[in-house]
Amino acid sequence: MARTNAAAPEDAYERLRSQIVTGTLMPNERLVEIDLADRLGVGRAAIRTFLTRLEQEGLVVREPNRGARVRMVTEAEAIEITQTRMMLEALVAREAATRATRDEVAEMRAILAEMEQRLNAGELLLYSDGNARLHAVILRASRHATAARLISSLKAQTVRFQYRTVLVPGRPRHSYAEHTAIVDAIDAGDADAAEAAMRTHLSHVTTTLRESHAQQ
């Protein structure tokens, strides 16, 4: 039975979005309205609204007479998206350097320490999860709502590429050093250094994605 509380439609939307972002619903998988309505416990009108929102986010493609499907992001698109993120996240790092609280910096340091532990243990997928959490804390510390909204949309389109770079031999150690430089600059309140460190980090991510694509 569908839930009737006011939060139900938004909860259902977030569940559907999460299933796409995490890969539970695979790229190019068809999204059948009646099946989604039954699974999420909402009406088909709500599902149509959800699909419109997801299309606007670049997560869904809708085609006349063929319905909706999960959008397939190509490797070339993933590279372009990461280049765009580099510009936005450099701004975010700059803002975080002047706005982060001591508690937020301490949280970044704690995540860095956990990332180092995961790296030393060879737990690369868990290291990558820590990477994502660190970027989220930096984003929150920037207090930049517009950048946060845009970055969230961009990252959602490339989650399936998240683990690819961390599995490239030698890349995790470089990644850890780059993240440390970002946090050090934020901790020091050095906006120029924080911006430069984030640009360096994501430019290396872009290069790694490009090289991985070329090898494939």
Results as ranks from 00 to 15, higher is better:
L202K: 05
I111W: 04
I138G: 01
R140F: 10
A148P: 05
A37I: 05
I47F: 04
Y176S: 08
T24I: 14
M108C: 15
V61W: 02
A214S: 13
G41Y: 04
S203N: 11
A37H: 04
H144G: 07
L112N: 08
I182H: 00
S175G: 12
R171S: 06
R85K: 10
T180N: 12
A113D: 14
V73L: 08
A181F: 04
A46S: 15
D11Q: 13
R3C: 11
T84A: 08
D129V: 11
S175W: 02
I47Y: 03
E123C: 08
R199Y: 03
P64T: 05
A90M: 05
I138S: 02
R15E: 10
L40T: 01
P64Q: 07
A2F: 10
S175A: 15
L150H: 06
T4G: 11
I151G: 07
G122P: 03
T24E: 12
N5R: 13
A185Y: 08
G130C: 10
S142C: 09
R48G: 02
D192G: 03
M26A: 14
L167V: 05
D11S: 12
L209V: 00
G41Q: 03
E80A: 04
V159Q: 12
R62C: 04
R3G: 15
G170W: 01
L139E: 10
T200P: 01
E63M: 08
R17F: 04
L167P: 02
D184N: 15
A177S: 11
T24V: 15
P64R: 08
S18L: 12
Q162S: 10
F161S: 02
A96I: 09
E211T: 06
N65D: 12
V32D: 08
A7M: 12
H204I: 06
R94D: 12
A141M: 06
K155Q: 10
S152G: 15
L125V: 14
A37R: 04
L59V: 00
A45E: 13
A185R: 07
R85M: 03
H144L: 10
A78L: 00
M87R: 09
A196T: 02
L36F: 03
E33W: 00
